[in-house]
Amino acid sequence: MNGKNKNSGPPLTCDGCREGLQEYLDGTLDKPESLRFFLHLRECSGCREEHDRLLGLFQMLDSLPDHEVPADFDAAVLASVPYAAYQAMEPLRRERVPVFLEEAFLPRFVRARTVRLVGVGVASISAALALRGDGSAVLPVLVVAGLVPEILVRLQGLGRRALESMGRAES
C-alpha cells in the first residue's frame, strides 16, 4: 500500500476496499477516493482478485443479449391508440395560455377601444404641451396614465403571439 500520496488520504483497508468496490467500478467515487482504491488494488492481490471477479460480472451484466421483438408487437398497440380523442382535444390544448395573457384578465373598460383611443389622445396632447415648455407637473403623469390601457392590451397580444410561436417551434 502506498500512503505517501498527500491527495489520497489515509490508506484503504481491505474491508474498506471490498465494501466500496462496486462504487469504484461504477465510477461514482470522487477522484481522491478513487485514487485510494487504485493504490490499494495495486498493492493488494486479494482485493485485486475480488476486483477482477466483480469487473467480470459487471461486463457480463452489461452485455446481456437483446431478444428480438415479435413482428406483431406494434399492431395491437397502434390499434388501441385513441387518435380521435387526441385530435378532438387538440384545439382545447392549443388555447391554453397563462391567466395573465387571457383577454378577460384585464378589466373590460381598460380593453374598450374608446378608452384606449381617448387615453392615447390625452397622452399625445399632454406630451405636446410638455414639449412646448408648459411647466405643469401633471403633464408627465397624464402621458403615462393615458398610455397605460393601450400598452397593457398590446403587451398581452405580444405575449400570446410569442407563446404560440414558441409552441410551433417546439413541435
Partner: peptide, 25 residues
Amino acid sequence: IRRCKRGEEAAFKEILERYRGAIYN
C-alpha cells in the same frame, strides 16, 4: 410526444420504434 397529443399516428409509431426493444427486453 407533443405530436402524439395532436393525434398524429406517425408520432406513435416513432415512439414505438424508439422504445419497443428496451421495453420488450
